[in-house]
Nucleic acid binder design. Structure first.
Lengths: 375, 375
DNA sequence: CTGAAAGCGCTTACAG
DNA sequence: CTGAAAGCGCTTACAG
């Protein structure tokens, strides 16, 4: 049961100090207004506040002030390490900038997106950071926020109308990872991507399109590139015409239905007898699936199969895995994201911008080549 | 900039419908009060509310009502999978019970524990769930909540004065895991625990004490048990008197200073030439460290070294790891935790209780024994 | 230097 | 069936 009596209000302090509530309010607010009061009065009020363990009633402050000092973070945490870290950094940056924040994990949210958005509007947040946006968050949800005059900034998300985007340069990272594989002598490089929606839609998803583009760019410098659906994948795809890279789209819904789509694919691949000599995975979690499948099938990493990931998950550091990967400049991204949101908040007419940050290549053992190249 | 004008209030609806604000308020509140009004009036008000996208101002409701309908969750997420899952389940249970919640991740919290507690008091939460409590949360912090009339329930945490505890039966799980190792024929079983504070303090930590007790209980059914600090550990400890189990305390601060304390220990152990035939690790994350170290040193799991964990992390399912572990009944624990909090909220004089849930043993390949037993 | 007063948006008894 | 009014705790002009 909520015990009202145990909570001190300004009124209690006023009564204890025999001054008016306005006096207490002004002194507690600090700043200009407070300095006008008698030093002695101020001391008494402050002492009483401390003594009575006074804490401002945020709801009352919020109602009175035009500003809530609150920023909402919509995230999809509880899963990928990089996303979790980004959320933590955003919170830190907001605190450092003097804001409070309320974080909504869309994986927790009982009432779904609709309700989360509503909660943020109700809470009168002064801005929203969307971290690692996903498809569940639709344009109309963002519209609701923007329509309510709440600026929105996307961190490592998709491009959205009227929303500034601060993100990692995925294209560059995947190009570098692929180039590294080529430099190591790999000539049958397979990139695994999910098959979400139609081609046009997929390519519109930044995280999807950039992964593919980075791969294609690097492959194209040395040879030819092909794409294929999982059903039609076979090593024949690498034959003739100096085909060095193939981007394969996993069966639709493999990523939703299956627990470990890449693991299962790699097991099938190994069992089928033919296999590429290198795998470009979308992130470290998938790279681990690939490695686990390969080890289980008796292959050696990287002798039989090289693997690259993305994100630099902690587990990839174990020498047994030694995942070659790229690490985003999350600190830079998050700091810029908060600064951008603050700018939009101060100047609502500011147009949406995009700012990208390079990832750092991390070369480990998972993609070395120790066996001699075949002619 | 916060745009007040874009937000509809009851006043706006009243003006649009040409009724009083009280009428709008009563109709919007629903329930008994609303039914007294003319059907036609109600319809008009509801339609206008929808049309104008009315959303109640939570701060105003909170200030007016004696109840905030808010429950705080203090957690230490962003790390252990089991803890993350528990937090998600708590949120779901709270929503199902009609409460809103505000989750505070102590790993994010800029201002530290002090501030998090203060925020909860300010937010006038009607109860607090502490998930996977840690030492950073001190008795005095909990006192602040209790003193403010806010009931507190600990989920999978430590025993605290005046705080109900809902938790897994760690003792039983560790006893079962150890018994399983014994049944598989292992006779040199090493349990690795951190060395936090003095013995008396350590044992007072439930998660620590129960792990040890469970191990000791199982070992004692078949032979003798010993304990040792890491500095004095050697295989001699297993010699004579049918010593089957040794609990070893890692060097103080190894868990804080070192990134992967169990990994580093296991590498040293393997390098030293002597090693137990089974390792009981505190959780799956540590079991993975042990396995990674063993694989790296050229050992086979479980032929050369058996390993058990706790928590059933997803990664342990990969056959290469195949971690034998135990999975907590998180669903049961979280549901009971929320129900208990609700009871305390309704009846503040209720004494604190403890409720434990059994974990489910999950036997995988990491602790089989295929080599014959030495005499 | 200090106090009286208005009002943020809502809920809730109370009067008609 | 509906409205006038009080008040939750706070901030902020304004008056003295």
């Amino acid at each position: 049961m909520f015990n009202r009596n145990s909570i001190t209000t300004q009124k209690d302090i006023a009564e204890a100090c025999l001054v008016s509530r306005a006096t207490v309010g002004a002194i507690l607010a600090g700043g200009k207004a407070a300095t006008r009061y008698n030093e002695e009065t101020r001391r008494r009020v402050l002492a009483a506040a401390k003594e009575l363990r006074y804490r401002p009633h945020r709801a009352a402050q919020l109602m009175r002030r035009s500003q809530s000092n609150l920023i909402g973070i919509i995230h999809f945490g509880a899963g990928l390490e990089a996303a979790d870290k980004a959320n933590m950094l955003l919170a830190q940056e907001l605190n450092a900038a003097g804001f409070d924040y309320v974080a909504m994990d869309m994986n927790w949210q009982g009432g779904g997106v609709e309700r989360a958005i509503e909660e943020l509007v109700q809470a009168r947040v002064e801005g929203v950071l969307i971290s690692h946006i996903q498809e569940v968050l639709e344009d109309r949800h963002i519209e609701i926020l923007l329509h309510a005059g709440i600026p929105v900034v996307s961190i490592n998300g998709e491009r959205r109308k009227n929303v500034s985007l601060i993100c990692d340069n995925i294209t560059k990272a995947f190009s570098q990872l692929t180039s590294h594989l080529l430099a190591q002598g790999h000539r049958h490089i397979l990139q695994i991507l999910p098959q979400v929606g139609k081609e046009a839609y997929r390519s519109s998803l930044r995280a999807w399109g950039e992964r593919k583009n980075g791969f294609v760019t690097a492959i194209s410098t040395l040879g030819r590139w092909k794409e294929a659906a999982e059903v039609s994948f076979s090593m024949n795809l690498f034959e003739g015409e100096e085909i060095l890279g193939v981007t394969m789209y996993q069966n639709p819904r493999a990523y939703e239905m299956l627990k470990r789509p890449v693991y299962h694919f790699c097991k099938r691949l190994c069992a089928s007898g033919f296999r590429p000599d290198a795998l470009v995975c979308s992130n470290d979690a998938y790279a681990i699936e690939a490695i686990m499948a390969a080890l289980e099938m008796g292959l050696s990493i990287p002798e039989d199969l090289a693997v690259t990931g993305y994100d630099n998950d902690r587990i990839g550091e174990f020498p047994i895995l030694g995942i070659t990967t790229a690490e985003q400049d999350l600190k830079g991204i998050c700091a810029a994201g908060v600064q951008t949101l603050i700018k939009h908040r101060e100047n609502p007419s500011l147009p949406a911008t995009t700012q990208t940050f390079d990832s750092e290549l991390i070369l480990r053992t998972s993609c070395g080549r120790t066996t001699p190249l075949l002619a």
